[in-house]
Amino acid sequence: MSTTQKFTKIDLLTARNSLNGPSFSFKNRVGRLIWWLVCLLFFRYTPKNFHVWRRAILRLFGAQIGRKCHIYPKARIWAPWNLKMEDESSIADGSIIYSQDLIHIGFRTIISQGVHICAGTHDHRYRGFPLITKPIYIGDWVWIAAEAFIHPGVSIGDGCVIGARSVVTKNMPKWMVCSGFPCEPLKPRIFLD
Rank of each mutant, 00 (worst) to 15 (best):
S2R: 13
S2C: 08
T3K: 14
K6T: 14
K6W: 07
F7Q: 15
F7W: 11
T8Q: 06
L13Y: 07
L13S: 13
R16C: 03
R16E: 11
S18C: 15
S18I: 03
N20V: 06
G21I: 00
P22D: 09
P22Q: 03
S23K: 02
S23W: 03
F26L: 14
K27N: 10
V30K: 04
G31R: 08
G31C: 04
W35S: 09
W35K: 09
W36P: 00
L37F: 14
L37R: 12
C39F: 15
L40K: 13
P47C: 07
F50T: 04
H51E: 07
R55S: 09
I57D: 01
F61R: 05
G62R: 05
Q64A: 07
I65P: 06
I65F: 03
G66D: 11
R67N: 10
K68L: 06
C69E: 01
H70I: 00
I71H: 02
I71W: 01
K74T: 00
A75R: 05
I77F: 06
P80R: 04
W81C: 10
W81N: 12
N82H: 05
K84S: 03
K84R: 12
K84I: 09
K84V: 02
M85T: 01
E86Q: 14
E86S: 14
D87K: 00
I91R: 10
A92E: 11
D93L: 07
D93C: 07
G94R: 08
S95D: 02
S95C: 09
I96V: 01
I96F: 15
I96Y: 14
I97A: 12
D101W: 00
L102W: 11
H104Y: 14
T109E: 10
T109G: 09
V115D: 10
T121M: 14
D123C: 09
H124G: 01
R125Y: 08
R127K: 13
K134Q: 15
I138A: 08
D140M: 02
W141H: 14
I144C: 01
A145Q: 13
A146K: 11
A146S: 14
A146W: 07
E147Q: 13
E147F: 06
A148I: 00
I150G: 05
V154R: 04
S155Q: 13
S155T: 15
I156D: 06
G159F: 04
G159K: 12
V161I: 15
I162Q: 08
I162N: 07
R165D: 02
S166A: 15
S166D: 09
S166N: 06
V167E: 04
T169M: 07
P173G: 07
V177D: 03
S179D: 09
G180C: 06
F181T: 13
P185S: 10
L186V: 03
I190N: 04
I190V: 14
